[in-house]
Design a protein around this nucleic acid. Sequence first.
DNA 1: CCGGTCGAGCGTACGCCGTACGATTGACGC
DNA 2: GCGTCAATCGTACGGCGTACGCTCGACCGG
Lengths: 258, 258
Amino acid sequence: MSLAGEMSTTGTVPADVERPSGAAGTPRPPTRARERQATPRGSLTSDRIVAAGLGIADAEGLEAVSMRRVAAALGVGTMTLYTHVQDKDALLALMRDALFAEHLVTDLGPDWRTGLTRIARRTRECLLSHPWVLALGLRPALGPNKLRHLEQVLAAASGITSDTAAQRTIIHAVDDLVIGCATQELAAKALGADVPQPLCGLRRRIDADPALRGLLDSGVFPHLSRMLAGDAPFAAERFEQALTWLLDGIERTYRDGA
Amino acid sequence: MSLAGEMSTTGTVPADVERPSGAAGTPRPPTRARERQATPRGSLTSDRIVAAGLGIADAEGLEAVSMRRVAAALGVGTMTLYTHVQDKDALLALMRDALFAEHLVTDLGPDWRTGLTRIARRTRECLLSHPWVLALGLRPALGPNKLRHLEQVLAAASGITSDTAAQRTIIHAVDDLVIGCATQELAAKALGADVPQPLCGLRRRIDADPALRGLLDSGVFPHLSRMLAGDAPFAAERFEQALTWLLDGIERTYRDGA
DNA sequence: CCGGTCGAGCGTACGCCGTACGATTGACGC
DNA sequence: GCGTCAATCGTACGGCGTACGCTCGACCGG
């Protein structure tokens, strides 16, 4: 039930898997010319499938995760996966939930603000180090690890108000900000940006396209031109600032009343 | 250059397209038994391809947008599209940029806060009414309409500070919140949620899965259980509240200094 | 009027994908 | 020893993006 504890923290690819071939009392001399059955019949579990999927996704991105590929990484026929996993969508959902285990923090700290800040930072790091999670897009995932994560966020939020509807609004707001930040940061990184110094990624891409470059120079974008002339703050700084603003707003609302 | 003005505002599918077949001075008696050439040779433009793509995406979702499908909607051979569009990715980028035209607001209002609020609301509505945009995921799009949108956001943000780095942080923060809100809202809507009354979508889905249901009832999720017993606020209310918090935080930072 | 050139249009094919279906086969209870 | 059943997986189907090369209409210099 509590499958996929923190298997994903390995980071590097656990894809190519041990081939027992003679493990656990089943020597299996191939009765026919069958060389198959490298995995001893009952050893394939959805956990191992999910782990293989995570390895491929981390190493090569989400688009490399195909059923054939996962099966090959496990040394198993493609259709065998369907005995343990309903769908490819189901596999992706399991992978998503496995990663929610990484969202957990070990210590919420002394007050709600510290707790929410720590969770937000951890979640952001998690999303940034597994970009394929956001590429999953709108597919909603629900699993035991997501429940654990929700519980932890709620535990932090309950320090500020006991109104459950307000708690919901608060954790959603923080989550939204983190998701949005990570999404945009990854999109920017896909362009080789994030070196903020002289030119940001946006500037570089506009320069690369003569049409856009002409449009920018046409003078109808005064604010944009001025901004592109200056330096850009690091994404991490932007995130911290935005989080501070949001938590400031929350704090002001609930400091007195509630 | 400024292709795709507000073609996407049509909403409904412009897919099945007029077949001129004898238009504009080329009667074209088929010299052979060729019945093709329904579109009079020069009439296919990337604009029309993008429009067809938008129609399919709005009507049937992003996964229905395939090169074959778009070509069929235009009454044209599949490979013909590649004369006007480099890639499927390029087509999707053009579609994304076309939608940025919808992000523009007609009036920013009297002050920066009104301006940012209006843009944020408009952007949210835009994302919600074209869910496939977020499904595009991390693919960064850049085009003339995105530049126009950026210029407008910057125009609003410049009312609070003239520091361009700070402007950048501000507009990113607002954008992040909107993107995150819309993402989560669409994910929730995909489950048939958003009727907040007795049970939210989360609750319904937990109940649907006996394993999760058991986990929840096991008592290790006290905060979660308490929250699920209460009502959930509407997504729109959550968005407005979060935006207010964020803008409050921004306002406090810049009201006195800068 | 004519011949040449060029690019728009597109038919075919290749290698991927997810997965329905049914045959095979090993483990286990009797 | 044998029936049963679930795990395994080979084959096949329809769809995808797109590389490649052919056809053919339109235009242009003569």
